[in-house]
Design a protein around this nucleic acid. Sequence first.
DNA 1: AAGCTACCATTAGCCGGCTAATAATCAAAA
DNA 2: TTTTGATTATTAGCCGGCTAATGGTAGCTT
Lengths: 143, 143
Amino acid sequence: MFMNFENTLSFLLAKVTVAHRNTLQKSVNESGLHSGQVFVMFELWKSDGQRQIDLALRLGLSPPTVNKILGGLLENDFVTRAKYEDDARSTRIFLTPKGKAIRGQLELQWIKLEEQTVSALTDTEALMLKQLLAKLLERPELV
Amino acid sequence: MFMNFENTLSFLLAKVTVAHRNTLQKSVNESGLHSGQVFVMFELWKSDGQRQIDLALRLGLSPPTVNKILGGLLENDFVTRAKYEDDARSTRIFLTPKGKAIRGQLELQWIKLEEQTVSALTDTEALMLKQLLAKLLERPELV
DNA sequence: AAGCTACCATTAGCCGGCTAATAATCAAAA
DNA sequence: TTTTGATTATTAGCCGGCTAATGGTAGCTT
């Protein structure tokens, strides 16, 4: 009479969420970073000196979440805050030398993580999965 | 010189899962439940009176996580705890009438959520995505 | 110039994950 | 029988998400 809960896409996504976050956590904590911090660092490596609100928008996270993550990065001296001269409301986030230096290591760890994840699939499957996930992300309100 | 971070499977999975959890949260909070509680309830509907450790194993969650989620369900009178006669260590979790009554509503909401999610894809794509996610989940240590 | 509105950062507080550490119990081995 | 080890639940404390509410600033309108 009742549906097959475990076979819904929503269920599978939820399960993958938890599993993937655990794997990500293990993968990056060698570098002294936590899972959420990695995404902020990648964004800063692309463009240093962003405002918090822009980081939030590009990462698809709420401003308080970004603020909290930055707190940890500041404590560990990966980034610094600096007031933006033209606008006293916003602060700009800059990479420290330590934050810049860690990039290579993190990229290698990310590549290893990617190889691990992809190893469960064939090349075709991996490509297809990426395309399907990207298609879901095009509708942020639906995922 | 550096990799295309946004095009890795690991990145896409991380993004999709955050987005999906937000959608799930909105979907189920009409019923008075939170996102994590839903999975425990579905598990109890399948088999009432389980021990916490068995819930944790079947859900793929840590025992403290299940314990915390059950705290909320107990407070809101969706479940009750009862000692297992043969073993003083474990407790068994039972659905209350309120917990049993909410099943139909939750199932409908889940179906709506599923339709929403799947609507971004064709039938073939949705089926394929489910199969690929399921394949990833077969290797819990890799996702 | 004054005031309204929009924007940015921040705080507080919640839920959902986790690990590590405790306490109690059970079971098996010595 | 005692002791040792495994199991179960629980607590504490962390990170990563979120919403709601504050306070300060900018900017536009009047």
